[in-house]
Design a protein around this nucleic acid. Sequence first.
DNA 1: TCCTAATTGAAAATGATTTCTGATTATAGC
DNA 2: GCTATAATCAGAAATCATTTTCAATTAGGA
Lengths: 140, 140
Amino acid sequence: MANQFDALLRRLSLKVTPKRLAILEILAAEPIYLTPEEVWTRMKRKSTRAGLPTVYRNLEELSACGILIKIVHPDRRLYYYFCPNDHHHHHFVCISCRKVEDLNFCGLDSIDREVRKSLKGAVVSHLMQVYGRCKECLAG
Amino acid sequence: MANQFDALLRRLSLKVTPKRLAILEILAAEPIYLTPEEVWTRMKRKSTRAGLPTVYRNLEELSACGILIKIVHPDRRLYYYFCPNDHHHHHFVCISCRKVEDLNFCGLDSIDREVRKSLKGAVVSHLMQVYGRCKECLAG
DNA sequence: TCCTAATTGAAAATGATTTCTGATTATAGC
DNA sequence: GCTATAATCAGAAATCATTTTCAATTAGGA
């Protein structure tokens, strides 16, 4: 199996195309949230040229089936995509270098309990992003 | 003092204009996140006609100085604005009726401690939104 | 009241994302 | 391997929330 994502795509009955593999390789290579356009630029560098709409479509598809995580930038109206290697979806995002680090802490259990108890509602999903500066950016 | 926001605006050295007051009144009247366009529509109903750019400008300004809270919808690429009456910025947002309720629980202290200790980074800001169905929508 | 800077409206611009169309390509079945 | 076919693709054009521009108006201090 030339590529680690080959089997993953097949399992999800998505065709294994050079574009899809390139996108996944780029995102798997750096633990950073990238915009569709940044992924596209990196593809050109790797001489896997693709149309921007293709990049958008694939990122959307791959995040829809759970391979990638998609977030919105809270200030600019942009989508960012990230390839997590584990299943923990809470991140510390450095506002300088955009590096992503995992947060071991997840307060969702307490939140779920709180919503159920005092609001009598039901939690469907949640979004938690913590922004700051990472160790390296604080030093530099 | 004809209007409760009069003094607030003066304190922030923002001119007290009919449009600004109308926007604040609309948002203060319902505990719901509204899009700029929804605010604009409600202004027309109140016969305080304003241009859409004016609504955008004011919402941006008012959220910049902390009177309003601005979030991005995680799926559609829209801005939502909300007028909090207290200072607690964690919300439970009903995905059916869009009503906003406060969450007493805030895990930021623990997160801050975690980031400082194990990542050696510094938290600058955070975004937590919990989506679900409120009591009424669960019943209806 | 007058002056000046802030605010506003209307139209045009922006820019990320999506849609459309007609090629191209991966893969299942032979 | 070969073929059929459904998925995928590129490029151009469209979409649409938001922003900018600029001339006209207005709020608030002097």
